[in-house]
Deep mutational scan, measured.
Amino acid sequence: NKFNKEMRNAYWEILHLPNLNEEQKNAFIQSLYDDPSQSANLLAEAKKLNDAQA
Rank of each mutant, 00 (worst) to 15 (best):
Asn1Phe: 01
Met7Pro: 01
Gln53Ala: 06
Glu23Tyr: 11
Leu20Asn: 00
Ala40His: 10
Lys48Trp: 09
Tyr11Arg: 12
Asn4Ile: 04
Ile29Val: 06
Leu49Trp: 09
Ala54Val: 10
Asn41Ser: 10
Ala52Tyr: 12
Trp12Asp: 02
Lys25His: 06
Glu23Lys: 11
Ala44Ile: 11
Ser37Arg: 08
Ala44Glu: 13
Ala27Ile: 11
Asn21Ala: 08
Lys2Ala: 09
Tyr33Phe: 14
Asn41His: 11
Trp12Glu: 03
Pro18His: 07
Ser37Trp: 07
Ser37Leu: 03
Ile14Met: 09
Met7Val: 09
Asn4Glu: 13
Leu17Pro: 00
Trp12Ile: 03
Glu45Leu: 14
Asp35Leu: 14
Ala10Tyr: 01
Ile29Leu: 06
Ile14Ser: 00
Lys25Trp: 03
Met7His: 03
Gln30Val: 08
Lys48Asn: 09
Glu45Phe: 14
Asn1Gly: 04
Lys47Leu: 06
Asn9Tyr: 15
Asp34Phe: 12
Leu42Met: 06
Lys47Thr: 02
Ala27Trp: 14
Ala52Leu: 09
Ala54Trp: 14
Leu43Asn: 03
Arg8Thr: 05
Ala46Arg: 00
Ile29Met: 04
Asn41Leu: 10
Asn9Glu: 11
Glu22Tyr: 13
Ser39Asn: 04
Asn1Met: 02
Asn19Glu: 05
Asn1Tyr: 01
Ser31Ile: 05
Asn26Tyr: 15
His16Ile: 03
Leu20Ser: 00
Gln30Ile: 08
Lys2Val: 08
Ala52Glu: 06
Ala52Met: 11
Gln24Arg: 07
Asn50His: 04
Ile14Phe: 05
Glu45Pro: 01
Ala10Leu: 02
Lys5Leu: 01
Ser39His: 13
Leu20Met: 05
Lys2Leu: 10
Ala46Pro: 00
His16Ala: 09
Ala10Ser: 03
Asn19Ala: 09
Leu17Met: 09
Leu42Thr: 01
Leu20Tyr: 00
Ile29Glu: 01
Asp51Met: 12
Gln38Thr: 11
Gln53Arg: 04
Leu43Gly: 02
Asn4Tyr: 14
Glu13Trp: 15
Lys47Pro: 00
Asp51Phe: 14
Pro36Glu: 02
Glu22Met: 14
Ala10Asn: 02
Tyr33Glu: 04
Glu13Phe: 15
Ala52Asp: 07
Gln24His: 07
Arg8His: 04
Gln38Val: 08
Gln24Met: 11
Gln38Leu: 08
Lys48Met: 09
Ser39Gly: 04
Leu42Gln: 04
Ile29Gln: 04
Ala46Met: 01
Phe3Gly: 14
Gln30Asn: 06
Ala44Leu: 10
Glu6Pro: 01
Leu43Trp: 03
Ile14Trp: 00
Glu6Asp: 11
Glu45Gly: 12
His16Gly: 08
Trp12Ser: 02
Phe28Leu: 08
Asp34Pro: 04
Gln53Lys: 06
Ala40Phe: 15
Gln53Glu: 13
Leu15Asp: 01
Asn4Val: 05
Asn19Pro: 00
Phe28Ser: 04
Asn19Asp: 04
Asp35Val: 12
Ala52Ser: 10
Ala27Tyr: 13
Leu43Asp: 01
Ser31Pro: 03
Asn19Tyr: 11
Ala40Leu: 12
Asp51Ala: 11
Ala40Gln: 09
Tyr33Trp: 08
Asn9Ser: 07
Ser31Gly: 06
His16Asp: 02
Gln24Pro: 01
Tyr11Thr: 04
Leu49Val: 11
Ala27Glu: 07
Asn19Val: 06
Phe3Ala: 11
Leu17Phe: 06
Leu32Gln: 02
Leu20Asp: 00
Ala44Thr: 10
Glu22His: 13
Asp51Arg: 13
Asn4Arg: 03
Glu13Pro: 00
Glu23Leu: 12
Pro18Ile: 09
Gln38Ile: 10
Phe3Val: 14
Asp34Val: 09
Asn26Arg: 15
Glu22Gln: 10
Ala10Arg: 04
Asp34Leu: 13
Tyr11Gly: 02
Leu43Ala: 09
Leu32Pro: 00
Phe3Gln: 07
Ala54Tyr: 14
Glu45Met: 15
Arg8Asp: 01
Ile14His: 00
Pro36Met: 04
Ala10His: 02
Glu6Ala: 09
Phe3Asp: 14
Leu20Ala: 01
Ser37Thr: 08
Ile14Gln: 00
Ala46Gln: 00
Ser39Arg: 13
Gln30Asp: 04
Ser31Phe: 11
Asn19Gly: 06
Lys47Ile: 06
Asn21Lys: 07
Asn26Phe: 13
His16Pro: 01
Asn41Ile: 11
Met7Lys: 01
Asp34Tyr: 06
Leu42Ser: 06
Tyr33Met: 04
Asn21Gly: 11
Gln38Lys: 07
Glu13Asp: 06
Pro36Ser: 04
Gln38Arg: 11
Phe3Glu: 13
Ser39Lys: 04
Pro18Glu: 06
Ala52Asn: 14
Ser39Gln: 02
Pro18Gln: 10
Asn50Lys: 03
Glu6Tyr: 05
Asn26Ile: 12
Asp35Trp: 10
Glu45Ser: 14
Gln38His: 07
Ser31Trp: 11
Ser31Thr: 09
Trp12Tyr: 06
Leu20Phe: 03
Asn19Thr: 03
Lys47Phe: 06
Lys47Ser: 05
Ser31Arg: 14
Met7Leu: 05
Glu13Asn: 15
Ala46Leu: 01
Asn21Leu: 07
Arg8Gln: 09
Gln30Ser: 11
Asn21Phe: 14
Gln38Asn: 10
Lys25Met: 12
Glu6Phe: 05
Asn50Phe: 02
Leu17Arg: 02
Glu6Gly: 01
Ala46Phe: 02
Ala10Gly: 01
Ala54Thr: 09
Ser37Asn: 08
Lys25Glu: 02
Asn41Tyr: 14
Tyr33Arg: 05
Lys48Gln: 10
Tyr33Ala: 01
Asn41Trp: 15
Tyr11Phe: 10
Gln24Lys: 08
Met7Ala: 13
Lys5Ala: 02
Ile14Lys: 00
Lys25Ala: 12
Ser37Phe: 09
Asn50Ala: 08
Pro36Ala: 07
Leu17Glu: 01
Pro36Arg: 04
Glu23Thr: 07
Gln30Trp: 15
Leu17Gln: 06
Pro18Ala: 10
Lys25Asp: 00
Arg8Lys: 11
Asp51Glu: 13
Glu22Asp: 06
Phe28Trp: 08
Leu32Asn: 01
Phe28Ile: 03
Asp35Phe: 12
Lys2Gly: 14
Leu49Pro: 01
Trp12Lys: 05
Leu20Gly: 00
Glu45His: 13
Tyr11Asn: 02
Gln24Gly: 03
Ser37Ile: 08
Ile29Trp: 12
Asn26Ala: 15
Asn21Glu: 08
Glu13Gln: 15
Ser31Glu: 08
Leu43Pro: 01
Gln24Asn: 04
Ala54Met: 10
Asn41Lys: 13
Leu42Asn: 05
Gln24Tyr: 05
Leu17Ile: 02
Ala27Leu: 12
Glu45Val: 13
Met7Ile: 06
Gln53Met: 10
His16Phe: 07
Pro36Trp: 05
Lys48Thr: 08
Glu13His: 15
Gln53Tyr: 10
Leu43Phe: 05
Ala44Asn: 07
Leu20Arg: 00
Tyr33Lys: 03
Ala52Ile: 08
Glu45Trp: 15
Asn4Ser: 04
Ser39Leu: 12
Glu23Pro: 10
Asn41Val: 05
Asp51Gly: 11
Asp51Asn: 09
Trp12Asn: 03
Phe28Thr: 03
Leu49Ser: 06
Asn50Pro: 01
Asn50Ile: 02
Met7Tyr: 07
Pro18Gly: 09
Leu15Arg: 14
Leu43Lys: 10
Phe28Val: 04
Glu22Ala: 11
